[in-house]
Amino acid sequence: MIVQACLNGARTAGYHPALPLTPEAIARDAAICVATGANELHIHPRGPDLAESLGAINATIPSVRAACPGTLVGVSTGAWIEKDAARTRDLISGWSELPDYASVNLSEPDAPAVMDILDRIGVGIEAGIATVEGAERFVSLARQRPALRILIEINEQNPPDALALAEEISAVLARSQVNRPILLHGFDATIWDLVRMARRCNWSTRIGLEDGKHMPDGSQASGNRALVAAAIAICRGQ
Score class of each variant (00 low, 15 high):
Arg65Cys: 10
Arg65Trp: 10
Arg65Glu: 09
Pro69Glu: 06
Leu72Glu: 11
Val73Ile: 15
Gly74Val: 06
Val75Ala: 05
Ser76Trp: 01
Ser76Arg: 03
Thr77Trp: 06
Thr77Ser: 15
Thr77Glu: 04
Trp80Phe: 12
Ile81Tyr: 02
Lys83Met: 07
Asp84Arg: 06
Asp84Lys: 07
Ala85Asp: 15
Arg89Ser: 11
Asp90Pro: 00
Leu91Trp: 00
Ser93Lys: 15
Ser93Pro: 00
Trp95Pro: 05
Trp95Ala: 01
Ser96Asn: 14
Ser96Leu: 12
Ser96Gly: 11
Leu98Glu: 02
Leu98Trp: 08
Pro99Gly: 12
Asp100Leu: 04
Tyr101Leu: 09
Ala102Ser: 13
Ala102Asp: 03
Ala102Pro: 04
Ala102Thr: 05
Glu108Val: 04
Glu108Arg: 04
Pro109Met: 06
Pro109Arg: 11
Ala111Gln: 04
Ala111Gly: 08
Ala113Phe: 08
Ala113Leu: 14
Val114Tyr: 01
Met115Leu: 14
Leu118Trp: 01
Asp119His: 13
Arg120Cys: 12
Gly122Tyr: 11
Gly122Met: 13
Gly122Gln: 12
Val123Arg: 04
Val123Tyr: 10
Glu126Gln: 14
Glu126Val: 03
Ala127Gln: 09
Ile129Cys: 07
Ile129Lys: 01
Ala130Leu: 11
Val132Thr: 10
Glu133Asn: 11
Gly134Ser: 02
Ala135Tyr: 09
Val139Leu: 11
Val139Tyr: 05
Val139Thr: 06
Ser140Asn: 12
